[in-house]
Amino acid sequence: MLRLILSRLIQLPIILLVILTVSFTMAWVMPGDPFNAEGAKKVDESVKRAMEARYNMDKGPLIFFTGYVEGIVTRGDFGESTASSGRKVADIIKDGFPVSASLGLCAIAIGLLIGTTAGVLGALKPKSALDSGSLAVTLIGISLPSFVTGAILLAVGASLTRLYFPSLTWLHFPLGGWSGPKSIILPAIALGLAPAAYIARLIRLGLADIMSSDFVRTARAKGLSHRDALFKHALKVAFLPVLSFLGPAAASVMTGSFVVEKIFNIPGIGQEFVYAVQNKDQMVILGVVLVFATMLIVFNLLVDLAYAWVDPRIELD
């Protein structure tokens, strides 16, 4: 186990460097330039050159990139945004990441709760109305994009409740923003529905499979009820594919969703990447890519470790 963790940690910087190099190449060859991002008015060539000199971009991609990596390694300096008043990339991440991460974890928790419940309910009485009902709901959950669910949630939870139940203030969810625990609920549901649907289907299908396997049949033969066999034996096994789904899902949800953050006006990191690409804001692009890649690697490691806990037969080394 320790060896696994160590080797992954040693791999981490190498993988990150590869990802950085690839992203940087793409960001560099992408058309446009960071000093002409918005508006129709163009910046004078000589002004552009001088700005490029300030940001060390005038001597070509190689020097810029090595300078950037050197800055990270020697000074922990992730550079600054060219589009927004020289804001430090580290500050952008420091402000946005906790927001996106906590929202994402809440969304995953909601996804797990709803997904597991729906999956188990379906598996308890296969082919019943409950089963097809939960399957239908999860299908909708997968197909509905978050900008639809988000807008509906906002309209119902924040707008209609104020209109029709003016006295029930506990039902009045905030009109966007990131101002307290109540402001997490709606966006977390909007963000958690898609993973919930996924998890429900994984569990429902996994359970169906496992419930007809030999060891469950043996357990049933020994007199265990359908319900006990499901909860005590099958669910644990059916959860394995969910675990491997959770790793990348958590990483992606925690690094922010452009759509949900926009609809609910949440100052997370999800919008940052889109705006940075639009503005060709190189160092912000790279900084956000770094965060995302690190999250992905760390969460995959966590999933592997969790696997070993759930199923001791799996050998990690």
């Binding site: 927001v99 991460a101 906590s102 923003g177 307290g180």
Partner: peptide
Amino acid sequence: LRFAVIFGLIAIFTLFAAFTSFDPGP
């Protein structure tokens, strides 16, 4: 128990990240 510990840690992290990042308003 191990699961409970892990979930507990994640929950604490979430709460910490959320509460330190909430916007107190002007």
